[in-house]
Amino acid sequence: MNIFRFAGDMMHLTSILVLLLKIYATKSCSGISLKTQELYALVFLARYLDLFTDFISVYNTIMKLVFIVSSTAIVWCMKRDRVVRRSYDKQLDTFRHYFLLAASFALALLVNEKFTFQEIFWAFSIYLEAVAILPQLVLLQRSGNVDNLTGQYVFFLGAYRAFYILNWIYRYFTETHFSRWIACISGLVQTALYADFFYYYYISWKNNTKLKLPA
């Protein structure tokens, strides 16, 4: 464990807490893409298949459980909670995310560390995570104004993978045979997708204006 990875995990956890805060405090999920949340729930379920077979550390196990439980709770809440689901922007959240699922799985069958069930699902979760934010970014552009909590949610979610890239660079130079090129390349793509959001987020923060993404 290094400071970059720990900071990344804490930013990831913060993004989920901010999202939970927004949904429970405002009893609203307006501006949140249910499709992105469904994809994230899948990412964690596909990635943490080794939850009960490989014990890494207490921290690792607890964080995996937190991510699985929180992501499924958010999906359940946006679909089932009578008050929250009324504010879901169904007509704006129209990204065809099944393509992202199919493409990620196809790529995982072709490019993986080993052609085994667990490795294919791990690679699938890595590729899917890189593109899972797309429905959310499209929804933000369509809905124009972005409320503070939603903006902070996306910001922390983007920042977490940026810190993971620093973690991979650090591990590359400090550990002998460290090769995580699937996660690294995918992480670069994932962070690049946030580039324009980060730019407009920084502008809105600098000018202290409301965050607006150009349609």
């Binding site: 990875r5 995990d9 990831h12 990635r47 080794d50 490989d54 890494i56 690792n60 964080m63 995996k64 991510f67 560390e113 080993k114 085994t116 667990q118 490795e119 791990w122 993971y164 973690n167 995580r180 996660a183």
Partner: peptide, 10 residues
């Protein structure tokens, strides 16, 4: 040896 590299990252 395990059939997969243990993934120690989240």
């Amino acid at each position: 040896a395990k059939d997969h590299v243990t993934k120690d990252e989240l």
